[in-house]
Amino acid sequence: MTCGSVLLSVRGLRKEYPLRGGLLGRGRGLVRAVRGVSFAVEEGSALGLVGESGAGKSTIGRTLLRLEEPTEGEILFRGRDLSRLSMRELRPLRREMQIVFQDPFGSLNPRIPVGRAIREVLEVHRIVRGRAAREEAGNLLEVVGLKRADGERYPHEFSAGQRQRICIARALSLSPRFIVADEPVSALDMSNQAQIVNLLLALQEKLGLSYLLITHNLAVVRQIAGRLAVLYLGKIVEEGPTPDVFRAPLHPYTEALLAASPSRDPRARGRALLLSGEIPSSLRIPSGCPFHPRCPRAGEKCRAEIPREIAPGPSRRVSCHIHDGGTGPPLERRQGQAPRGPIPS
């Protein structure tokens, strides 16, 4: 699937949101949503970005398209740094990168027929107008497995899965090379999920698209993405080829995510390793390794030192003391209580 050449390369991406409020609107803190993230997407390939809600996945997706301004870092798309371009310079490049969102209900205007919603994109970007635009919108609907005549219908007349197809058709209207798919199947039931997954794969094959697939669903990632990056509190904690990461996860967080995904085997019930607690607020990032308050294998070193990123194998990387000289003596935990929230540093 990979063709080798890098389409998108992100280096040291940061996104912070100052919290204002209180007396005289003074800063009350800083939400560090993305804390120095680097990755690359190769031409014609898909990178899966996984993690729990609050990890910063969607912020990264939106920042790539400059729907959010990055605080720091480079976003190189075909060699040009998007973060430095003016909005005018950005516009032609925007055609080449599109986004599909989770919610196919909220992404379509309920008052206009779906064919017109697609046509408008073509007209705004001055690709084609009038009759030709109508023709092209019909073609796009066919590409995603709907009928030309469906263009006359309104969003409420479609099922959730069909609406997601329409959103994909609209994203395809500008012939993009790169699509950010932000939880594209999470609002759908299983059989619709399969249809959309297969559609994304077929489009990749046919049009040579590249994807950044953002999801918390590991079962979906492994169907689509050749590489997988695991995000925790705004940092990539592990990255590698998807089959390798599934076979042998290196970071305890990846291990926990895999173990938490429900198994289809009722005989294997109850074997899931439960991850205790919840992801802390990005307002108060825990000291040392940010995962240490929830990590079953954390030691003293994990509380004190931020693990560096190491490359334990070809095209793999991980940030964890276990793979870098050990974790030190185990952390003392209060028995019977799930570690919860950040430990004050």
């Binding site: 099922s159 899965g161 069909q162 299983m190 059989s191 619709n192 999920q193 399969a194 249809q195 997954v197 297969n198 669903n217 590991l218 079962a219 979906v220 492994r222 169907q223 089959p243 599934f246 895999l258 995904s261 429900p262 198994s263 289809r264 085997d265 294997a268």
Partner: peptide, 23 residues
């Protein structure tokens, strides 16, 4: 059987998904 074939799963060997056509 169709539901089981259609659903993506995180365990076991990866398989091509076979969605149930239509709705």
């Amino acid at each position: 059987r169709a539901l089981l074939r259609a659903a993506p799963r995180a365990d076991g060997a990866p398989e091509t998904l076979r969605p149930i056509e239509g709705s």
